[in-house]
Simulated scan of single mutants.
Amino acid sequence: MSDAFTTRVLHIASGTRERVVDLTQDCEAFLREAAGDRDGLLNIFVPHATAGIAVIETGAGSDDDLLAALHTLLPADDRWQHRHGSPGHGRDHVLPAFVPPHATLPVVAGRLELGTWQSVCLVDTNKDNPRRQVRLSFLA
């Protein structure tokens, strides 16, 4: 593999409750090793059918607001055709249509180019799967 493309898999314990997990520090640590001082793109991908990646503000209530909005859009009840797992689990399989399983972000001089309040987050509403993988890939 050339140094123009580098990848790493993070193993995230998201637990047994709905969560928004801030991955920004993990992304920055990866870029310190992979990017050096180069420009490029960081791709973040979660290879799960019931989780997504969001770029949002965290810590000021926005992460809880996102989960509340998802509850409004995708209620955890018995309306879903997909019926294995916890009650309402079918909604978790619809989540990636609203919160995609990937994001591609600019890297300038080895640093992630985020806005002042933006963070890279794993959005996991699936209480049945407490372990997640997130693939970080840097392309120079």
Rank of each mutant, 00 (worst) to 15 (best):
L70I: 08
A51L: 03
L66G: 02
L67H: 07
P47K: 08
H48S: 09
L70P: 02
D65I: 02
I53H: 11
I56E: 08
L74Q: 06
D78A: 15
A54C: 08
D77C: 05
R79E: 09
P47D: 14
A51N: 05
D77A: 09
E57L: 10
H82M: 11
P47I: 11
A69S: 14
Q81Y: 00
G52W: 06
L73P: 02
A54G: 08
P75N: 10
H71Q: 14
G52D: 13
G52V: 03
L74D: 03
A69R: 00
R79G: 03
T50D: 03
L70D: 07
L74A: 07
E57M: 04
L73D: 05
H82C: 06
T72E: 15
I53L: 11
D78K: 06
L70K: 04
L66K: 09
G52E: 13
D78W: 00
H71C: 01
A69I: 13
D77V: 01
H82F: 05
G59T: 04
H82Y: 11
V55I: 15
P75A: 04
H82T: 12
H84N: 08
L66R: 08
G59M: 13
A51V: 00
A54F: 09
D64A: 14
T72N: 10
A68T: 15
P75W: 08
A51P: 00
T50F: 01
A60G: 10
R79W: 10
A51M: 04
S62Y: 07
R83P: 02
G59D: 11
A49T: 14
E57Y: 07
H71R: 15
I53Y: 11
P75K: 00
A54W: 08
Q81S: 14
A49K: 01
D64R: 13
A76R: 15
A76K: 14
A68I: 00
T50Y: 01
